[in-house]
Simulated assay, not measured.
Amino acid sequence: MTETMNNTANTTVRNIAVVGTGVIGASWTADFLARGFTVVAADPADGAEERLRRWVDDFWPALTTIGLAENASKENLTFTSSIPDAVRDADFIQENGPERLEVKKAILEQIESAAQPEAIIATSSSGLLITEVQKGMRHPERMVLGHPFNPPHLIPLVEVLGGETTSAETVDQALAFYAEIGKKPIRINREVPGHVANRLQTALWTEMFHLVSAGVASVEDIDTAISYGPGLRWALLGPFLNLHASGGDAGITHVLEHLGPAMRGWSKDLGDYPETEDYIPVMAEGVEQELDGFDWAETLNQRDELLLQLLAAKNGKPQIP
């Protein structure tokens, strides 16, 4: 069922600039438009505007299902190839440039040449340290991590973190803004490479590459083990609360006291992330075998439909943290 969202009247943000309109930037753009904002998007790449508007059209049905703000419209999107022109009147800037420090710094230099001093600049960087990114900025206090998960218009998680020279006020404002537009922001208290969720994913990736390489299980069986096993529970409560639920009345304390010795043994037997690229063809071949006979585009569409149903179910159960 399609619902109309409440307007974003509580936030002081009115105009948003999206810098970089690849997959992540396009998804952010569609999400902001659906929340009722005016968006100016910038990308100097050839064909960027046509690609962006096509992606926004593709994303819009899912956003309509989630629920649009009263004044949401794709017509609220303006495109320019000029980064300074895009950010000039923005209250909030979502930057989505390449994961290369010098490129990121060059983009930020263009942003700062025209942005209002009080405008918040949030980077979608998945791994760069904010302290390194903000070095050399004229207003580093307004630079913050706003790292989403793909696709941002569907996945609510946003990791928020300030660097050494980011003001506490900026971090608080970013957290509040993302929460007000329906995201699930988390505050990261200390900089580490890869932030939080990607590090958790990398721990799982390391072991799944090891298990396949060692011949313990196939690519398809690893996917089945997660998607029809702990992945179902993780989507509802998260790993800590699931451990707590497994312990009965005594909760997580009982689980860790009971399984702790065994878990320590398992951890010592875990594999290491591959040091060479020899594993890549093996994983790719396994994925091809798993997808044999499937229409991948249709599979992704089905994934998104199920994701929307899951999100709707979670939103209808406020007692679930």
Rank of each mutant, 00 (worst) to 15 (best):
E132A: 07
A174P: 01
R100F: 10
H254E: 15
H254L: 15
A168P: 10
E132T: 01
W28P: 04
G25W: 01
G238L: 10
G215F: 07
D295L: 01
Q173F: 01
M137K: 05
I226F: 08
D58G: 10
V196H: 05
V158W: 06
P44R: 05
P281K: 01
I188D: 08
D223R: 02
E191V: 09
G286M: 02
A179L: 06
P140N: 08
G67P: 12
D172L: 05
N6S: 12
A41L: 05
V160L: 06
A313N: 10
V255T: 06
F177S: 02
A48E: 05
D46M: 11
E275C: 08
S73W: 06
P44Y: 03
G251E: 11
S246C: 11
E288H: 14
E290C: 11
L232F: 06
E159Y: 07
T21D: 03
E70G: 15
Q173P: 03
E305I: 10
T131R: 09
L52P: 01
V216S: 07
M263S: 06
N198E: 01
S167D: 01
A9S: 15
N71W: 02
G316V: 03
N150P: 00
D221E: 05
A34S: 13
N315P: 09
A119N: 00
A297F: 13
V23C: 05
E285H: 09
N198F: 06
D249E: 12
K183A: 05
W296E: 15
L101S: 12
L128D: 02
S218E: 02
V19Y: 07
V19A: 11
R51A: 13
M263K: 04
E102T: 13
G127R: 05
T166S: 09
V196C: 11
E141H: 10
I155C: 11
A115P: 00
H139D: 08
G162S: 06
Q173K: 15
T253D: 15
W266P: 12
A69L: 07
E112D: 00
L300C: 13
M1V: 13
T78R: 13
D172A: 14
R138T: 01
L308C: 03
G265I: 10
M208T: 15
D221I: 04
S246V: 07
H254G: 08
L211R: 01
I66W: 14
L128N: 03
E220S: 15
R190I: 01
N96V: 03
L77D: 07
A114P: 01
N242R: 07
T299A: 15
V171Y: 10
V219G: 03
E290S: 12
E99C: 00
E169P: 10
D89F: 00
T21I: 03
I111D: 02
D223I: 04
T65E: 14
N15G: 07
P156Y: 00
T224H: 13
L157N: 00
I186Y: 04
I188L: 02
P261M: 09
T4L: 10
A245V: 08
D269W: 00
P44K: 03
A42N: 08
A62H: 14
I24W: 00
F177Y: 11
I66D: 14
A235I: 09
P185L: 02
F294I: 14
A214V: 09
G238H: 10
G293W: 05
